[in-house]
Amino acid sequence: MLIVVDPHSGVPVYRQLIDQVKFHISSGLLKPGAELPSTRALSTELGLNPMTISKAYNFLEKDGVVERRPGRPLVVAESNQNGMHDMKLERLRESLALSVTMTRQLEIDRERALELFKEMLNDTDDNGGSQ
């Protein structure tokens, strides 16, 4: 599994793990039923305290993203469309957070900012919907 953590970041390492697993699921790299590496294997591979890995895995399990079966590796849960939708929205929310901060700091009018977002959405639609 392709996971890269930056321990020297303002984002807690367990959060980085959660975000990347979710990203791999929403991008289709990790499909439902796919097995996740064991806590021990991932902690050795990434050079991290195993407790950090289990903390991330516990959150993912609580969110219903992965399933734990006794004595077997964790697997990606059968996709429930609602969950997947939430996950994608969550990713958009994260990337918009910076724009929201910028809007406040540059003191740009709210309506103008919303207009800009709509304009940019429409522009990409005209170009065939993707970049």
Partner: peptide, 29 residues
């Protein structure tokens, strides 16, 4: 990695001092 191996296999308790913050950030809870 050796310390992590010990953690994984023996569940040892670790107290360590370091000026290497990234090591602390990887190892310490």
């Amino acid at each position: 990695e050796t310390a992590i191996q010990l953690l994984n296999e023996s569940g040892s308790t670790i107290l360590f001092s370091s000026h290497h913050m990234s090591d602390v950030e990887r190892m310490a809870r």
